[in-house]
Amino acid sequence: MRSAKTAAPRVVVIGASVGGLEALKQVLGALPADYPWPVIVLLHTSAGYRGTRLDTLLAQRCALPVREAEARRPLEAGVVHIAPAGYHLLVEQDLRFSLSVDEKVSYVRPSADVLFESLAEAVGVGAVGVILTGANDDGAAGLAAIRARGGLAIVQDPEEAQAPQMPQAALRMAGADQVLSLEAIGARLAALPGESA
């Protein structure tokens, strides 16, 4: 049996594509320096930051340390882990990362579907999945996997998203516990640990 709700480790995972860099800066900027959960961020390289270091770009706007995720290294509380370009990022049952260069999924690598599905299997109800702006369907199946195991699903309001397709696909395939503006998503993620304490 899976562990009881209160015992499941909590992990926030955020997927974004086109328009995602600005969206991520806003959401991550809302998290306090003492944030108690690991955060994993996946931004498609098609979002246009290729060649620039995403961790540097995000660290400027985020109170938490931002680091690229490494194979076999553990998820850390209060750290924003970034999916490296060109590799699928997965979370293992022992809450360590692994990487793969297997085929693209949903036409992308890294794929949010791969990451979200692995996290859903690793932490079940502990997963908090967030889908932000993007112009493809990646992440929808992954968010559905998180919901199927009792995790929490938050989707950016497509009306507000720079590219609505990714949130729309997520809502169509997975639905969501909450559909929020970027500002509200940041506030919600910041408040969640206090509510579950």
Binding site: A71, R72, H88, L90, V91, E92, Q93, S98, S100, D102, V114, S118, E121, A122
Partner: peptide, 9 residues
């Protein structure tokens, strides 16, 4: 093998 990607394959 790392289980998560093995499982996918």
């Amino acid at each position: 093998y790392a289980p998560a990607s093995f499982k996918r394959r």
